[in-house]
């Protein structure tokens, strides 16, 4: 990963102005429903998010990056359909498309690239992330790592606004997950050129459930 490391850091940084900061990755709702009460719960929350939604997002980002690098743009649409089939919650579909759109909009300003005119109009976030990675000359493995990082950083950053926790503890939970994340990202990268139908589809039923409850809440701190 010698080449492109700086570009990967640019793309994966939560400070990239693409609107990600408004989302807690379901954590706000999980806290409200009493499922996350302390740092141990947070760690379990993050672990499950990594092995389900995170692993799926990472594989789709890798595959989308691979498709863009190989100029197989028709596969990008197929990947987007496949990702949607793996996202049964309408609320999460909406969030993913919004984040995907915001990322692509930000990229038009940050790093103009011919791909931007040729991509489908709407893309789910992991697919958009893979495409953005390709625009930055990153590899599928980078795309997988970056999107997985984002999947976990959202809730890990949101937690300090939602619960009484020590921010160091939240980062310690992340640090302890590093080996798991490396494994997941490595597996995900193997899907760079895979048939889109064979990509992982790991389900996270409580994420789907809490996302719908959250969307129906009158009062909330985070958009999701």
């Amino acid at each position: 990963m010698a080449r492109g490391t700086e570009a990967l850091l640019l793309l994966s940084d939560g400070r990239l102005p693409a609107g990600g900061y408004a989302h807690s990755g379901g954590l706000e709702s999980a806290i409200r429903m009493g499922r996350v009460n302390d740092i141990e719960d947070l760690k379990r929350f993050l672990t499950g998010r990594a092995t389900t939604s995170g692993a799926v997002a990472a594989a789709f980002a890798a595959a989308a990056c691979g498709a863009c690098l190989g100029d197989r743009l028709e596969d990008v649409s197929v990947l987007d359909d496949e990702f949607q089939a793996r996202t049964p919650s309408p609320a999460l579909r909406q969030v993913s498309r919004t984040l995907g759109r915001q990322l692509l909009r930000a990229m038009t300003a940050i790093h103009p690239h011919q791909l931007q005119q040729r991509l489908p109009r709407r893309l789910n976030h992991p697919v958009a992330f893979g495409a953005a990675a390709a625009m930055l000359d990153l590899e599928p493995d980078d795309a997988a790592r970056g999107v997985l990082h984002e999947t976990l950083m959202g809730p890990a950053m949101a937690v300090v606004k939602l619960m009484s926790v020590d921010p160091f503890d939240a980062h310690r939970a992340l640090a302890e997950l590093v080996p798991l994340l490396d494994t997941i990202a490595g597996d995900a990268a193997t899907y760079a050129d895979a048939d889109p139908a064979t990509l992982p589809a790991f389900g996270a039923p409580l994420s789907d459930v809490v996302a719908e409850h959250h969307a129906a809440e009158e009062v909330r701190l985070f958009a999701s």
Binding site: A18, G19, A22, A106, R220
Partner: peptide, 15 residues
């Protein structure tokens, strides 16, 4: 919905 950071949404990250 600006997710707890109204100032970010109008300045740092306006996307």
């Amino acid at each position: 919905e600006t997710g707890a950071c109204p100032h970010t949404a109008i300045r740092d990250d306006v996307t």
